[in-house]
Amino acid sequence: MRSTTSHAAGSGAARFRQFLRNYGWAYAFIAVPVLLFLVFTLYPVGWAFVISFQKYGILKSTWVGFDNYTYMFKDDVFWKSMRNTVIFTIGTVPVNILISFGLAFLIFQLKQRAQTFFKAVLYLPTVASGVTLSIVWIAIFDPTPSGMLNRLLIQLGLDPVIWLGQKSTALFSLMLMSWLGSHGSGIILYLAAMGGIPKSLYEAADIDHASGWKKFSRITWPLLKPTTLYLLVTGVITSFQVFISVYLMTQGGPDFATTTIAYLIYQTAFNFNQFGLASAQAFVLAAVIVIVSVLQFKFFSTDIEY
C-alpha cells in the first residue's frame, strides 16, 4: 500500500493504478456484455454496411457501389414485401393493442382470483413457441372442406376458403392468427398500469358526476399512455421482423402475397446467396424501424396532457 504514494516520476503509472483500484471492478463487471456488444453487434453492423456495397463472395468480394440499393429499389418483390410488412403491421399491432386493452379492462373489473385465472389462460399462447403455434394454425387453416376453420364456415352456411393458398386471403390469415393469440404480455402490462392509477381520481370524477365515458377518456386512457406507447413501439419492431409464421406456413407465397421483408432478407441471403443485396435490404429495414420508432415517440409524447 505504501508504495503507491506518489512520486513525481511515477505519477502516470500511479494514477493509472489508482484509477484501476477505483473503477477496475466496475469495468470488469460490464466487460462481457460490452465485449459481446462490440464483437456481435457493433462490428457486424459496420461490416454489414460494407457488404451492402459489395457483391459478396467467400473468397473474393467486389465493390459495386450503390448497385445493390438501386437494384433493390427497382425490384417488384422488394416493394411487395414492404407493402405486405406494412399491411401486416398496421393490421395487427393497433388491433392487438386494442384487444389487450379491452381484455385487461374487463379482467380489471373482476375479483383477484378470477383475475389470476384469466391472466394465466390468456398468457398461455405466449409461452408456446412460434413454431408450435404455426404448426397448429397450419392445421386450422387446412384448405379442404374438412379443415377445422372451414368446417366452422360450412356450419355457418358459408363456402370453404383456401386460407393460405390464395393471394386474397393468405396475408389476412396470418393476421387472423395474430389477433387470436398474442395478448399475454399486453394484458399483464395494462393490468399492472391500471392497478397503479390512484382511486382518488375516479372518486373525484364521481363527485363531479362524470360519465363512465368521461372517466375513461379523461383518466384511464391518458394515464395508460406510457404502456400503450411501450406496446406500440415494441409491437411495431417485432411485427416488422415477422418471420416464423411466414417461413413455416406460406414460404412467402402464393405469388409473394405473404413475403415479408424479414423473410425476403432470409431468402436473398440464404437461398440465393446474395449477401450484399440482403445487407442492403436489412439496412432499409433498420432505417424504417428507427424512423417509425422515433415518430411514435414524437407523436405520442406531444399530446400527453394531465
Binding site: T41, V45, A48, A262, A269, F275, Q281, L285, A286
Partner: peptide
Amino acid sequence: TMMIPAQVTLIPLYI
C-alpha cells in the same frame, strides 16, 4: 442498439 433489427447483423454474424 436494441432498435437495430437482427437481420442487419445476421449476415456478418453468419460469415
